[in-house]
Design a protein around this nucleic acid. Structure first.
Lengths: 242, 242
DNA sequence: CGCTATATTGACTTTGCTCAACCCAGGTGG
DNA sequence: CCACCTGGGTTGAGCAAAGTCAATATAGCG
């Protein structure tokens, strides 16, 4: 079902009763919407009260400067919820854009309320998820502010690999990472050119290889060391992940 | 009363009934705790289920790298709530430190629940506050990633001036900013040395002067331009602030 | 097959970092 | 009351990381 990724992710927080996973699974099955790559997910005329559940494709939350510079402040992969908050904040101060073609399931406030009333474990799992989201924010900030380009890149790839693996989108030691160099740059606060050079250095290092939108992990422990990666921030139930 | 700052801040979101502001005011009046400058607010033995309301002094949320590099990911001034989340996330992946001597009021989960049940407008105001908090996060990320050192500094000073003014801690065109150059550096992702040079450049520019821990705004509009400041992210009820 | 995106490479510039010396103000203790 | 000490703050020279600009290659895609 369409919300499979979400269920897998929430299970990383802790076990969920069957009834809850069934209810979650039903979320993604109707009222979907597809947005082509490069286009914004938020457009005029949509009811912004809905919560979007990404069921397919990658999206990002980003901000722009009048110089044209762009900073991506969050990445959404399948199973991620993006709440638009427009009903609390009068105007959105950022945008959500599709990186690849994206399919979202639209969940109304009413549906969400009903789900939460019926399944208290799910409420807690959603809460956990939103805290992890903000932890990731902090970690990115640490990267952009304090890590070197190579460390930041390694860290991001570690994170993505682990996130993709929990939602079942990694194939052994490899996963698809559909970001262009320019998009990596917008996440890491680097230029396209420098991202290219940094990827080359990473590939030469041997811990991981990123080529043709495919990431292959040869030595996860080595990559984590290189990245000064700290497992803690993803807040998995089991602690450190292999 | 001790929660005055909080009430003023929440009023920037919208009007609050008198009964609600009274209830809020009562929050800060008991169970306080004081932490000296430089020390962490979270220590062993404290009940992390409490929510902390800063009633006096400045604190920050920060993360460290094993190299000793530090990134401050959030600043708390009087009226700010810092939720420790430890009861959802098993282990905290960051710390909260006191920048100046800090006094906090400890609010239990039960008190908070009671307050929220009785005052729906307050719930919404808290929700707004937490969204603004995360908006500020995003804006900082934009600064660290895309703005120049001078732009970032100007932006931070704009934000602090506006935040201090809404809680009534600005005196006309000036306010106290008790950060050392090193702390500015930890926020902006710059070194102490470079912060010093950047402040010198800012002072020479004439829009604002930062000296002896005191910020004086000579030309707010000019400072905003310099900072590529976008009023939107603070989400004040009235929109753009003078 | 050709078009557009993206990636790669190189030469050169700039921003911000490093390291190190020095200064100043405020607090402390004799 | 003064000497000292310490924690900032300031300055300078040299360096490294990342940015800029521009040309060229490559790869998907229609």
């Amino acid at each position: 079902m369409a919300a499979d990724h979400l269920v897998r992710k929430l299970r990383a927080f802790g076990p969920l009763p069957q009834a809850s996973t069934d209810a979650l699974g039903a979320l993604g099955d109707r009222r979907t919407r597809t947005v082509p790559a490069g286009q914004d997910l938020i457009s005029e005329g949509d009811d912004p009260r809905d919560i979007y559940l990404i069921t397919d494709g990658w999206a990002c939350r980003y901000k722009m400067l009048d110089t044209g510079a762009r900073q991506i402040v969050g990445l959404f992969i399948p199973g991620d919820l993006c709440d638009l908050h427009v009903y609390v904040l009068d105007r959105l101060d950022h945008s959500i854009g599709a990186i690849t073609p994206v399919t979202v399931a639209r969940i109304s406030q009413a549906e969400m309320d009903a789900l939460c009333d019926a399944h208290p474990r799910v409420v807690r799992a959603f809460w956990w998820d939103s805290l992890v989201q903000s932890s990731i924010q902090h970690e990115w900030m640490l990267s952009v502010g304090q890590r070197t380009a190579l460390e930041s890149l390694a860290n991001l790839l570690c994170e993505l690999f682990l996130r993709l693996r929990t939602i079942g989108e990694a194939d052994g030691d490899r996963c698809a990472v559909p970001l262009t160099h320019a998009q990596f740059g917008d996440i890491l606060g680097l230029t396209e050119t420098h991202v290219g050079r940094t990827i080359k250095r990473l590939n030469a290092g041997g811990c991981a290889t990123l080529k043709r939108r495919t990431l292959v992990i040869h030595d996860l422990a080595g990559l984590k060391t290189l990245a000064r990666f700290n497992d803690l921030y993803l807040h998995r139930a089991g602690g450190t992940l292999p």
